[in-house]
Design a protein around this nucleic acid. Structure first.
Lengths: 228, 228
DNA sequence: CACCAAGCGGAGAACCCTCTCCACTTGCCT
DNA sequence: AGGCAAGTGGAGAGGGTTCTCCGCTTGGTG
């Protein structure tokens, strides 16, 4: 038998078990910190200081830093739920009977998430590129999305020269609109997405294809603004 | 007659006469500072420190600050040329015989300028919203652009529900793509612009107009990221 | 050619930020 | 009930930024 304090050992091996054996009060604090952080990052953006989050959570800075050794760790953890939601949105879209509508749905959904949450936008556009925790999920989502694209093309809804990188292009564009349009972000984002989806349609047969080639974008090599 | 040092009084009342009576060496420094700043802001973005600019210019920080009392002043001055170029691009477009091509031309041109100059993008998207020096020019450009839109609509090239705010939408989107795609910015920007221009065309008769209404964006109320 | 205001450089003030150290308190198990 | 590891808070280190102060240098003119 364990002579140590046999913490909340969490017999269910559930995924978010990032909290191995934590004393009850500590766990409570951790939860509060995460709530505060989510709230703050959502409304203000990623550039809320750690001191501010500690203050709003009613804990000392040291506590915050013991639970989340770096700011990056806190951000990663705070947004992991929404990130997972993104992934599941893609999977839902694959289940949609009409490939083109599935495609539109996922684009609209993810962009709407970006629009409503400033911090998520930044986190998503890999403001912290080495958030290894996201990598696996991102890879999965990429794979699923590639299938979604193929299906939508085959069904004739999506133009044939649509490239996977165009999704990143759209996300970056949407990110710019969202961070740029403040309170009006949701409407602005919706309008941009509507325009772009229209341009992505196959039926409006592409004019002399004067579309420049896709520049092989990669969320990894994305520039991260002055958040660091 | 003036008993003071009768500086370079600049008899030509040329517009950029922001330098009233400056000693020769001082003026030389000022020029060098501006060159350095333009270069630095272009490649690195607006978040180059004043100390760095002073160092690269080979002057002390105090000199830099005496010539440009705030960083904002320096940015404003550094980009005033390119800003003026934007304005003239719009005017050139108005001279173009084909309204739709004129419209496309100005959009492509301005977005290309954004794509090639990271600092200009930030400055343009009013990272410094109270740069009063820009206000007049901006107002002029807005007016000219409104005429351009009307002409393009009348000629049947531009879809009728295009709103002036869509230009801002496009600029913000382009800004996001540019800051997000680092070295590949020019290609990425060109591809985005091609997509959007396609969506703006009138001929591809708008489907059941499920386009959300334009959200009355305004470059004034634009959120400025963590540049300040 | 001498004078002196204009111009200069760099130290440092004041303010942010992230993250660390350490003495004190407290939950939990025996 | 008592012991002790786990948990805590706040001061402060170390880095960044913009911008200021002040004593020294120098261009240009009478």
């Amino acid at each position: 038998m364990r002579t140590e304090h046999s913490r909340i050992t969490d017999p269910t091996g559930e995924p978010p078990a990032g909290t191995p054996g934590l004393r009850a009060d500590a766990l409570h604090n951790r939860t509060r910190i995460l709530e505060t952080a989510r709230e703050a990052f959502s409304t203000t953006g990623l550039d809320v200081s750690m001191a501010e989050i500690a203050r709003r959570s009613g804990v000392g800075i040291a506590t915050l830093y013991r639970r989340f050794p770096t700011k990056e760790a806190l951000v990663t953890e705070a947004f992991s739920d929404q990130f997972a939601e993104c992934v599941s949105v893609v999977d839902d879209a694959l289940a949609h009977p009409d490939p083109w509508h599935g495609f539109c749905w996922v684009v609209e959904k993810v962009c709407a998430m970006q629009a409503v949450d400033r911090g998520f936008t930044m986190a998503f556009l890999s403001a912290f590129p080495d958030a290894a925790a996201f990598e696996k999920k991102r890879a999965d989502a990429e794979h699923s999305f590639a299938r979604l694209i193929q299906r939508a093309k085959d069904a004739g809804g999506l133009r044939a020269d649509f490239a996977y990188e165009d999704l990143i292009l759209l996300l970056l564009a949407n990110g710019g609109v969202v961070t740029g349009s403040a309170a009006k972000a949701p409407e602005a984002s919706r309008r941009l997405v509507a325009y772009l989806l229209e341009a992505f349609r196959a039926d409006r047969a592409a004019p002399p294809a004067d579309l420049p080639p896709a520049p092989s974008l990669d969320l990894e090599q994305v520039y991260c603004p002055p958040t660091a």
